[in-house]
Design a protein around this nucleic acid. Structure first.
Lengths: 240, 240, 240, 240
DNA sequence: GATGAATGAGCTTTCATTCAT
DNA sequence: AATGAATGAAAGCTCATTCAT
């Protein structure tokens, strides 16, 4: 459907191989411009506060162009949500693929989400805060993004639980809660600016989460706990 | 302070001991009616989707009456947010006052929030979901409600941390995350209806949280873990 | 109908001869309060900009009281107009009665209007500027006030014209124009604050007017013209 | 600069020589339609009485079109005021340019204003009567229009006064008063319909004014005075 | 593809007026 | 007489969307 972020960027950026601006296959540069503009504008003024005109102006496009590429303002929001959903899922997948061992993988997954959120403030705001009030469709789409992540997390937990390596029963609830922690941190960061460095929260949250699911001992002395768990590496096959 | 819906109705309805309908102390019945109506209507249609007319109609009031009691639609939202903030804070305070021992108190605090959210679906939706997009003021007010709870939780954690009973360093972050878990559960419940019984999540979340902060051993065998922590009761003076 | 300004003031001020605040004959003190308040408020915010609430608040009265004494906001304006009309007519009558000789009488008439306007800035603004847009009735009432003055001036001119002492044919037009000059000065003063001293304009306007109607010679040398016409006093019977 | 109604219509209607409906130079037809409609509607119902809907309906336009061209109802009024200000200034300039001699030029100036007012009843009403109550901005704009005319008149008087040909000291006051006379005549005509022919007033007002400023002898016998001043023609360089 | 003038339903808010007490 | 809560008809303005060019 909607081009993933990368494709879009590629398309938009490319100088063009053959035809100098051949109109037919040129994937909509303007569509990308509109999406970019929307990201900024929606974040600044909120979904309801942002007028299509604002988006169009910022993109140096025309109303007609806008409605050529999007059937409605809502659809624009949907697309942004999906995009961000893709970014999040990708990031998590990549993080999981790069690590070995249960704890490191959990940590990496948490980090990947937090990092993605921190690196896309505007999208994060739109998806976390604005989406649910954009109407029924955006609300559901946002939820879908979350569910996708929750599912992935749960899959991992299920695996660990299957091996009895984790003190978790209702993996769905725990997955929900793990994501919720990150969401809460991000939202607070977006709203209040605290903590200044969102990713730094990991240092506290990761051990909390690992202990929570029972992957880390009673926390004994949190002494050198900053970098926890390196020792007890275990190979846990991520899903897929 | 703000009378809960029921109290208010009672106040408004009551015939009174002495003066039959003395004008002076009569609490604005209509204001209460408007607030009740707003709760339902805003939850149903969202802040932006709800017209003042809808609220007024449901309250069987007139536009004039509305603007007699509220200076704007936004102010109405603010009041709803504050009310719910009061309910949450009260509930948590009560819960903490009734329990002894660190773990039980933590559990009770978590439960109180979840219970309050579950018992006021409409308000919960409004405050959790709609508030941040009602404009700058509602957004800040919502954040204030959260900060109040976070502060309270942190105070408790600080105390435990002071006694070295808890594996937490940055109590603020952990407090944020603890509240965030509940928020995530509630939001998911509001959005998807799952889990059917929001409060039941506690069974999984409480141990998770207790382990997370290091109040519960490594989760030993998650076997009988369902009802955790009874043994290690400790007297921890809640704050204040 | 409406008590003239003086009566009203008397009524309002009097401590009362006999009954200490007998309610029945006590001419409405509150009515007067409302009128006074209205004068200030209407001048400040304009007829349309002023809310009945503003008037009521300033008068420390209640809405009910207002509608007890005035059937509508418009009626309030009408009364203010009539009052000021009375003041103007009175002032002119008094001025004419006190002087002898054509030129002095003309001068005195002009002065009386200018003085009255200057001494009642608020009323002047209301009547000159706001009245015509208060609706049909206030518009007509304002015009009536003007016509009354024009009529009086014309009567004087007719007399002089009858004696051939004045170079005027269409006395109605000239009367209109004489009043218009003063109106223009007053309005400009109200709008721009210039000249600082409205009454000082007389020094220029009076000779202008006297020459205009032919009561003053060609203006020969404007030299000592400042105080014009003393010499050529003539007995012109003012009307009445 | 603003095209008079007719020109505008012509411009709007014209089929055009070359480009068949070239978009670029097409003067906003609808804007003109709205202005025309506003002139009528505001004159009929007054500024406050006229609803934007009324204007829009009369112009066979939509609300959106209205707010596309005017940022507010007030701005519409401002434009009408400015337009009329331009007409008045133009007319006076033209009149002064066409005549030679002090008295004829004064007469012509007076005539030009009266004629313009008479030929644009609606605009005259709006500018003379409604403007000051449209709010602060329209009030000031109206005053600016007047000041512009006063300035021009004063410039002429200053010149005459410099040559000692005129019995005027404070030329600003006299200029104010000269314009005020015309205003008074016009307003009365607008309000009461009298005199039926506004311009006929000139026959009385012009000699009055000329005598007033000392350009016409004592008025001797007003006998043949109807057409005054032919004899004493003098070349007075009007300004510019 | 692109334009932007035009649409018009719908919104929040105001305020003169009423009336039960 | 006096109160002020309540009424409800407007009014000005917004903005997503359409469509002739």
């Amino acid at each position: 459907m909607a081009p993933s972020g990368e494709e879009a960027v590629r398309v938009a950026t490319r100088g063009g191989a053959g035809e100098p601006s051949s109109r037919e296959e040129a994937l909509p540069v303007m569509r990308e411009r509109l999406l970019q503009a929307a990201e900024t504008v929606l974040a600044e003024r909120g979904y309801h506060g942002a007028r299509v005109d604002d988006v169009v102006r910022r993109a140096r496009a025309s109303k007609g162009a806008f409605y050529h590429y999007f059937s409605s303002k809502e659809e624009l929001l949907l697309e942004l949500i999906d995009r961000f959903g893709g970014l999040l899922a990708q990031a998590m997948e990549r993080a999981l693929a790069e690590r070995r061992g249960a704890a490191p993988r959990v940590e990496a997954a948490l980090a990947s989400v937090l990092t993605t959120l921190a690196e896309h403030r505007d999208l994060a705001w739109i998806v976390l805060v604005e989406a649910p009030v954009g109407g029924a469709a955006p609300r559901q789409r946002q939820q879908a993004v979350k569910e996708r992540l929750i599912d992935r997390i749960r899959a991992g937990l299920d695996e660990l639980a299957g091996e009895g390596r984790v003190a978790v029963r209702d993996t769905e609830t725990v997955a929900t809660v793990l994501l919720g922690m990150l969401e809460a941190l991000a939202t607070r960061w977006l709203m209040t600016g605290r903590p200044a460095d969102l990713k730094a929260s990991l240092e506290e949250v990761a051990p909390f989460a690992l202990r929570g699911i029972g992957l880390l001992p009673a926390a004994g002395r949190p002494g050198p706990a900053g970098r926890p768990g390196e020792a007890e590496e275990t190979q846990v096959t991520g899903t897929r």
